[in-house]
Design a protein around this nucleic acid. Structure first.
Length: 646
RNA sequence: GCCGAUGUAGCUCAGUUGGUCAGAGCAGCUGAUUUGUAAUCUGCAGGUCGGGGGUUCGAAUCCCUUCAUCGGCUCCA
């Protein structure tokens, strides 16, 4: 007999060799139908794997990641099985479960192409196989055996994977006629896979290396119930409505023109207004926090970037240098502000007493992003960073770093931005030559970042290999409407540029010392930030940011004159107001202006003219009753103050 | 940059196998109406069917090419 300890601490005895599934069945047959995987002594296992010693056991239902993971991973194998039948000779790369669903990278063979039009047939074959109730069976094999099997099959991708694995850790899973190299865990059988949708097909480089072959990646998702799939598909449809590219067009915030060039956003008046309000808002806070605001040109001599090291690193992939009538003279579009700021630092001598020096700029930069990477306002070739550089003494690093965390959290809170994650990005320890700077400085900077984040009680994830080439960083990430992650704020420690630009300050010992530099942005870029703001609010900006605060809706043309007077008063009171004096019915005017996301609709009819009021309707909320004009003015001012004061 | 898909009026989209297939709704402009909290009615105007080339008696429809967009991959100072 063996002892099984459950999550609630209770212990029960079972005969050795029992599986988690059998235990679930003994508890209740209903439970057995709802579990998809089990954690045995902290390791996620197949439900059918026999347990032969005393263990702790947790059964996973659909709601838990481990269950979904097993479900989708099994679905990937099911898809592979279907593909093997439909495309004889097809070769397989990897096929994992992902956050929502799964994919499989495949090589259909020379000249063969799988497109979205083929997905339906694959889906149907998967359904056919799933209905056969195929069992997923696990087999541990030696490395030699595994290599033999896949060499015989001619699947060079699998053999490559196997050669990287350690002998003794290799397992195969089989369902029906399909066998795959896999660590597991899997469902007991294909039986629970009831609803299947293959969502898209895309190219993906083998092992993520752009120098290697591009495989075909097929994405899909499955559920135990059709209703769950339907709901998921509806969710995807609704997410499209929140897409900033769509709303930006609809509300006339920004546009792109192929004539101007891809990835070069054109801010329309309303979008420009929102953007400028963010700049003004941040400027006030920066000044209060001791930042000095500077302005630098949009181009710089190519030597500036040779000094900074950026030219060597990114030169070939940038907008190329432009020449001048002067022989040998070359300039580049500014891809970042830091080198310019270093030269501003160097323009005057500095004492240890004046550090930290905080230098900020809303600096527009130009980067030649690969054409396939461009995406609405979130990834563009010209954007304005809310950039700043903190020059400080080594002993000030921690305090300075923490104060920036505070600032970022303060701004996000003010903007009701709660849905972000913090990520500490370190260098890839196996690929150190990608980065510049000494080991010692890297180690030190990485430690300091981790410590600062911990002291600020920031919940972070640590990702190796995500650092900038000159230093580690702390990034603030958000997800867009369909779950893609974007970096907004970032704080980066840099020991490198101060060296390269020979930045110094006079210490109390009257000797020259080297300051260090912290790069930081809060919004990241105004473009990306506005994009995220649009998706978060579906275009219903907070009142203070809304480019138009109110619209006057006269019930008939008889009241247009009065409305015109009110319009003047409101606009003179710094409340940007429109008038809708079309000869339309009031219901129509309300509908149209609600769709334009204007925060306040002011209805004007006979009653209002007589009493000198407006009937206030708040967008999305309906009628709020009448107010005198001056009352409305102070009301709006008060509402705005409430929003931007913490 | 790579793989796949898409591109029809300002916007959202119809357009069956190449042959009155250049359409609809919304927006715009007209005129009527003068309206009390999410769509009043009438009429009109709008497109070299992304650009270029080709196949054909005939191309929005088929082929090539180019530009742009979308979904991924790679990249992201």
């Amino acid at each position: 007999m063996i002892k099984i300890t459950f999550p609630d601490g209770s212990v029960k005895e079972y005969k050795s060799g029992i599986s988690s599934l059998e235990i679930a069945e003994l508890i209740s047959t209903k439970l057995a139908k709802e579990v998809y995987a089990a954690t045995v002594n902290g390791e996620v296992w197949d439900l059918t794997r026999p347990i032969t010693k005393d263990v702790t056991l947790k059964l996973h239902k659909w709601e838990e990641e481990a269950a979904k993971h097993a479900f989708w991973h099994s679905s990937a194998h099911l898809m592979a099985g279907a593909l093997e039948l439909l495309y004889p000779g097809i070769k397989f790369g990897i096929g994992p479960a992902i956050e929502m669903g799964f994919y499989y990278d495949v090589d259909p063979g020379d000249g063969k192409v799988i497109t979205e039009a083929d997905l339906k047939a694959i889906e149907d074959k998967m359904k056919e196989l799933a209905e056969k109730n195929l069992l997923y069976t696990r087999k541990d094999v030696s490395k030699k055996e595994a290599l033999e099997i896949f060499t015989k099959k001619g699947d060079e991708y699998k053999t490559e994977l196997i050669s990287d694995l350690e002998d003794g850790t290799i397992s195969l899973y089989t369902q029906g006629d399909f066998t795959d190299l896999c660590r597991g865990p899997h469902l007991p059988s294909t039986e629970p896979i009831k609803a299947i949708k293959l969502t898209s097909v895309a190219g993906a480089y083998w092992r993520g290396d752009e120098k290697r072959k591009m495989l075909t990646r097929i994405y899909g998702i499955t559920f135990p119930k059709q209703k769950m799939l339907d709901e998921y598909l509806i969710f995807l449809e609704q997410a499209k409505i929140r897409d900033h590219r769509r709303i930006g067009k609809e509300l006339e915030l920004f546009t792109f023109s192929p004539k101007v060039g891809m990835g070069l956003p054109l801010w329309l008046p309303k979008g420009s207004d929102v953007r400028q309000k963010l700049i003004d808002f941040l400027t006030v806070i920066l000044r209060k926090r001791g930042y000095k605001i500077v302005t630098t040109p949009h181009i710089g001599n190519v030597n500036l970037y040779k000094t900074s090291g950026h030219y060597e690193k990114y030169g070939k992939d940038s907008f190329q240098p432009m020449s001048t009538p002067q022989e040998g003279e070359q300039f580049m579009l500014k891809p970042m502000n830091c080198p310019h700021h270093c030269e501003i630092y160097n323009a005057t001598p500095h004492s240890y007493k004046e550090l930290p020096l905080r230098m900020a700029e809303f600096g527009t930069v130009y980067r030649y992003e690969q054409s396939g990477e461009l995406h609405g306002l979130t990834r563009v070739r010209s954007f304005t960073q809310d950039d700043a550089h903190h020059f400080c003494r080594p002993d000030q690093l921690m305090e300075e770093f923490k104060s920036i965390i505070d600032l970022i959290l303060y701004i996000y809170k003010m903007l009701n931005f709660n849905d972000f994650t913090a990520q500490i990005s370190l260098r890839d320890p196996n690929n150190k030559q990608k980065y510049i700077g000494s080991d010692e400085n890297w180690e030190r900077a990485q430690k300091e970042i981790i410590k600062a984040a911990a002291e600020k009680n920031l919940v972070t994830t640590v990702v190796e290999g995500e650092a900038a080439f000159y230093g580690p960083k702390l990034d603030f990430m958000v997800k867009d409407a369909i779950g893609r992650k974007w970096q907004l704020g970032t704080i980066q420690v840099d020991y490198n540029l101060p060296e390269r630009f020979d930045l110094t300050y006079n210490g109390s010992d009257n000797k020259k010392h080297r300051p260090l530099m912290i790069h930081r942005t809060i919004f990241g870029s105004l473009e990306r930030f506005v994009a995220v703001l649009i998706e978060n609010t579906t275009g219903k900006f907070p009142l203070w940011l809304a480019p138009e605060k109110a619209v006057l809706l006269p019930i008939s043309e008889k009241f247009n004159d009065y409305a015109g007077n009110v319009l003047e008063i409101l606009n003179n009171s710094d409340i940007c107001t429109l008038i809708d004096d079309r000869s339309e019915k009031i219901g129509k005017k309300i509908r149209d202006n609600e769709l334009k996301r204007i925060p306040y609709l002011l209805i004007i009819g006979e009653k209002e003219v007589e009493s000198g009021t407006v009937a206030v309707r708040k967008q999305g909320e309906g009628d709020k009753g009448s107010m005198k004009i001056d009352e409305f003015v102070s009301f709006i001012h008060a509402e705005i103050n409430k929003e931007i004061t913490l």
